[in-house]
Design a protein around this nucleic acid. Structure first.
Length: 92
DNA sequence: AGCCTGACTCGGA
DNA sequence: CTCCGAGCCAGGC
């Protein structure tokens, strides 16, 4: 499901959970954390409901994700948050 | 089976 | 709008 997120767009955990028919936002996050090394999943396009990066473990990856998104023209405000009204992926 | 933990979310203050 | 607390489900011990 995460693979469906187009470049330059982001989705929330809850959104993915719903579309992927997962049993909850946490499972989505859990799944992404457990991604195999050889993945082709743009996990960086997934953020929490507030539009912020929430990597609980392995800090530093936060900056990485920020960079990846920035490379796809996703903008962050002064608080490091994404304007979901503009960048949230609307499955369509 | 019970208990703890976690890339979350939602409602109330 | 932000901060807290409770609710969630699955996985490892």
């Amino acid at each position: 499901m995460v693979r469906r997120i187009p470049r330059g767009r982001v989705a929330t955990y809850g959104q993915i959970a719903e579309l992927a028919q997962a049993s909850g936002p946490r499972q989505v996050g859990y799944a992404l954390h457990a991604l195999p090394e050889a993945h082709d999943v743009p996990w960086h396009r997934v953020v929490n409901a507030r539009g912020t990066i929430s990597l609980r473990s392995g800090l530093g990856g936060e900056a990485h994700q920020h960079a990846l998104l920035k490379a796809e023209a996703v903008e962050f405000d002064a608080n490091g948050r994404i304007d979901l009204d503009r960048f949230r992926w609307k499955k369509r």
